[in-house]
Design a protein around this nucleic acid. Sequence first.
DNA 1: AACCTTTGCGCAAACCTTTGCACTATTTTA
DNA 2: TAAAATAGTGCAAAGGTTTGCGCAAAGGTT
Lengths: 339, 339
Amino acid sequence: MEKGKRHISLKDLAQELGVSISTVSRALNNHPDISPNVTRKVQKLAAEMNYSPNPLAMGLLKQATRMIGVIVPDLVTHFYSSIISGIEHIAEEKGYYILIASSNESLKKEIKAVENLMKTRVEGLIVCLSQETKTYEHFDRLINNHIPLVFFDRVCRIDKVPSVVVDNVDAAQKITSHFCKNGFQRIAYIAGPDHLNISQQRTQGYLSGLKKCGLEFRSELLVKCNMSTLDATKVTAALLELSIRPDAIFGINDTVAFAAMKEIKRRGLRIPEDVALVGFTDEFHSTVVDPALTSITHPTFEIGQEAARLFFSRIENPDAEPIQKVLKTKLVIRKSSVR
Amino acid sequence: MEKGKRHISLKDLAQELGVSISTVSRALNNHPDISPNVTRKVQKLAAEMNYSPNPLAMGLLKQATRMIGVIVPDLVTHFYSSIISGIEHIAEEKGYYILIASSNESLKKEIKAVENLMKTRVEGLIVCLSQETKTYEHFDRLINNHIPLVFFDRVCRIDKVPSVVVDNVDAAQKITSHFCKNGFQRIAYIAGPDHLNISQQRTQGYLSGLKKCGLEFRSELLVKCNMSTLDATKVTAALLELSIRPDAIFGINDTVAFAAMKEIKRRGLRIPEDVALVGFTDEFHSTVVDPALTSITHPTFEIGQEAARLFFSRIENPDAEPIQKVLKTKLVIRKSSVR
DNA sequence: AACCTTTGCGCAAACCTTTGCACTATTTTA
DNA sequence: TAAAATAGTGCAAAGGTTTGCGCAAAGGTT
């Protein structure tokens, strides 16, 4: 079989049967106008020749590609791949495909990804902002043209764009309370960049958690990092070198917590005896490190599913008020934070 | 802006400028027939109105969608997501997008994925077989029609289909030799299902490694599992309960090795003093477990890149002899296997 | 002055599908 | 028996793009 004839079309069927293309089309769609006789013949041949409608032609006609663009900071973190899994799950049910692009945490690549995906005529976008993203003009065209758009986890423009997030304030409070209940007094928090909603909210939860436990806030125990392993190691070192060092640390995510764990161990300190540790996101390997890491589980698969559901409600009704879906997290207590 | 007019077309430009559609098309493609004057005007307006050609129309015309279907056993394992990253990297350079489907290690879902992706008119497929896949008829249509197809890691039909794999025999030999050099005598191997090329090859490397070191093969030390955590735990337990237990174990992949690690620890045995342990695949968390896990690093990103490259050479020349690309692995020695 | 070449552009087909409308037989109704 | 209704099909347009071919006007050659 030569190139360019890999798929058969209505035309092929029509020729074979000696009827017109429109008859074939109608027969396949069970249009009542077509005689049962012809309908049967057409459907039989179509099945035999393994016909399937050309989505390009349909797309052109209906102006709908049945594709969703998904932009994530990276593809390799379990958190994102699991969310993508959730999105895919719902998309598949609806007969949609997803086109994935990763921003690599770069604003520039994110902008490019938005452009490219729009060029491919996806019907809309589901996005988790890159770490660098502080300006949002690249989403204006979508918003103004009412093209479905959904943010998750790292979000913006929540007045205009539906989003799904976890209750970060609550989660950070849970951690702080947990430390407090277990007798820790000097609780440190390694935060992320200020412009990220997740970082802000977790900080807020940390602060209100302290207050609730009657602990005083000490500014030297609240430090920031850019969420890289390297930077996290550095700020952990700084924490451990304080004249009075913290007896408990929680990191904005597990990557940060793992880095902290290594640094703590490297200095010959014991977890949780000398310093307790809690992470955030509950990556798979939390259970496999020693000691097992207490962490906040994210309902990643559900986040993906919810995002996809919001997306489809957007497809159906592009002008409804955008809503924000807040999912609850769970604190999973393991050895790293209990003595 | 109302629905259905989100993108502007050649027609819009033509109308605006009072020329024909074909003139606009040619002007945008810098066709010499069009006067510089008109060309300039057209290109200016196109830029202003932010025109981009409709890929659906192009696809219809050229019978090319610039999309690649990718099927992986799952999306959430680092191994696969990293390979996907590699594929995406090359695809992006070529202006291609990838459509991802996961088989969830199920043959049925894999067959469905092949069907669905073909229906969406991807130009070809890059596939890692599911664990269940022992029959390959679902690829026949692609092979017979010369539709580009590339396998990686878990492969079949290598006489017909280009593939990229790692040198599993060599890798397993490296592990066995490493154990031997460190004085371990009773080396056990937890294999996977027989029909997987990777499992077979690693077994072969294990055997030849033993021979090279002058160690005798003992059938009770070669066990199989279905690569799930549960099953791996079970067979590890069996190994540890042998009248003379192994002093070293290597698992077919890191998931298996982690399961083994937990079981060994649970029984109060020390690693590597009582039992040494080596994994395969070098997932990220190898470094974070305690003791850090010796493992074979896979050049995952390169595997993805190579697979994509093979794919594109297939696009250009669908009838060339299929080649198999074999990539080398590296043994990364950590604490779990050295005493 | 009569013819040929070049320049610059438009027409229409092709890719594939759906669907409103028109058309031809056949059957029903008055 | 003539008129009207019905059943079963085909035509053509639309959606966006490229491209072979045709065509007109302008310029150049004897």
